[in-house]
């Protein structure tokens, strides 16, 4: 249920390869700990990730639409999406135009998401709301509804570039939007909190929120993902702690 992410200006092929290897084998000493759900990278890094993850079932997600601000002309954003899809991305993580959202230009937000969805074709679309910039839960709810109505397969809290990123409260608001959509249409939309989920304990809190808001069906990588890199090592550390009975050291776990 975890997406390992590297979205830095200093991403290099070596860094992306290292992250992919970590996604495939999180803990060498315990092969039973399976690979992560996806690896999330910038479009230029998609071919490298695809090559590294070939045949593994681990998905490659690419951010697009002038990530992280989203403040470029629509034609450029759509090109960004098409090229990421052509480069082999299995999933597209788009950002909404927060400026338009806060200016009340909901039609623009909706139309852009719909256009991106069209550009994605069969490729899975995640819509990043960047809730840390939206200011209130009301706006988050409205953005969630727009993103779902415009065709997003997943809604996602944050780019990871803005604080606050994922919080339990904002996640609950988004899950409620997903729940209402399900009640109305029977269609299941996915959820991805991203940024700020660093510990296994926090992750458990989120899983409880999901389970108690949407039920067991959503406890599945097709409908719920954590966008987190630090989380993986903490989970591994807690598993080791359970196995051995004593607290572990961070240096015991690989730093990719």
């Amino acid at each position: 249920m975890m997406d390992l992410t590297t979205l830095e200006g200093k991403d290099t092929p070596g860094k992306v390869r290292a992250l992919c290897r970590k996604a495939l084998v999180p803990l060498a000493s315990d092969p039973s700990i399976g690979p992560t759900a996806a690896v999330c990278v910038y479009p230029n890094m998609v071919p490298i990730a695809k090559h590294e993850l070939r045949g593994s079932g681990v998905k490659v997600a690419s951010v697009a639409t002038a990530f992280p601000s989203g403040l470029s002309p629509l034609s450029i954003k759509l090109d960004d999406v098409r090229q990421a899809v052509e480069l082999g991305a299995d999933e597209i993580d788009m950002v909404i135009d927060r400026g338009a959202m806060l200016a009340g230009d909901y039609r623009k937000v909706f139309d852009e998401i719909a256009a991106v969805k069209e550009a994605c074709g069969q490729t899975h679309l995640k819509v990043i709301l960047e809730t840390g910039e939206l200011g209130s839960y009301d706006v988050v709810r409205r953005a969630s509804d727009l993103a779902i109505a415009a065709g997003g397969d997943f809604i996602k809290t944050s780019t990871g570039k803005i604080q606050p990123a994922a919080t339990p409260a904002v996640t609950l608001v988004m899950l409620e939007a997903i729940r209402d959509h399900y009640y109305a249409t029977g269609k299941r939309i996915g959820m991805k909190p991203a940024g700020g989920v660093r510990t296994a304990k926090q992750a458990l809190h989120y899983l409880v929120i999901v389970k108690e808001t949407l039920g067991d069906a959503w406890l599945d990588p097709d409908l719920f993902r954590f966008g987190a890199s630090a989380l993986l090592n903490d989970v591994l550390m807690q598993l080791e702690k359970e196995r051995t009975g004593f607290y572990q050291a961070s240096a015991d776990f690989s730093a990719d």
Partner: peptide, 11 residues
């Protein structure tokens, strides 16, 4: 080459 930090031969 192309060794993952997590792999056995790296640690």
């Amino acid at each position: 080459t192309n060794v993952a930090q997590a792999s056995r031969i790296a640690h």
